[in-house]
């Protein structure tokens, strides 16, 4: 159980586009995107599970591609476009995928849900009707302790049948 050093390099401004809004954010040089989102921007929909890349709860989209935000350095993402779970629904309208998660019972505790949704959103943007194997591969980095994944796979399949989600999210 190690603790940090006393070295504290200065924070600096980074230009990030988060959920279609471009902003200048003050970040520490060693700060992860997850810390910037949760602590800096108070976007707490993105979850901190393991903080070591193993659980996928922190998954967000960077220019449409899912990444574990706990391992991504914020300063490395200068100028990139980031989508979090808060950016999926627009004007209160859920994406078909979000609605399918509710309808299928793919949500239990919901802690894995934001990350799952981001991984699945990226998949559906690329493949209109992915095979079950492709779905399982796409969410293999998102641990879920509650559902056994079955209803999550069903929800993604159901959403796929309804067509791809809003494509502008995943430029």
């Amino acid at each position: 159980m190690s603790q940090g050093t006393s070295l504290r390099p200065a924070r600096r401004l980074a230009r990030l586009t988060v959920n279609r809004e471009t902003q200048e954010v003050l970040v520490a040089p060693s700060e992860s995107l997850l810390e910037t989102l949760r602590d800096g921007l108070r976007l707490t929909g993105t979850k901190r599970g393991c903080d070591t890349g193993d659980c996928g709860a922190c998954t967000v989209l960077v220019d449409g591609a899912p990444v574990v935000s706990c391992l991504a350095l914020s300063l490395n993402l200068e100028g990139r476009s980031i989508t979090t779970v808060e950016g999926l629904a627009q004007n209160g309208r859920l994406t078909p995928l979000q609605q399918a998660f509710i309808d299928s019972g793919a949500v239990q505790c919901g802690f894995c849900t934001p990350g799952m949704l981001m991984s699945a959103t990226a998949l559906l943007a690329e493949e209109r009707s992915p095979s079950e194997a492709a779905i399982r591969d796409a969410i293999a980095g998102n641990l879920c302790r509650c559902t056994g994944y079955i209803k999550i796979v069903e929800a993604i399949q159901a959403a796929a049948h309804q067509g791809a989600p809003n494509a502008s999210l995943v430029s």
């Binding site: 190690s2 940090g4 060693s30 070591t52 706990c70 391992l71 350095l73 490395n76």
Partner: peptide
């Protein structure tokens, strides 16, 4: 050098070991 950071960040976090400077080639 920091590339993706998937090893570097984990080492910093779990082992509390890390460099004083990272150089990104982005």
């Amino acid at each position: 050098v920091v590339a993706g950071g998937t090893d570097l960040m984990v080492t910093c976090r779990l082992r509390g070991l890390g460099p004083q400077h990272v150089i990104s080639l982005r």
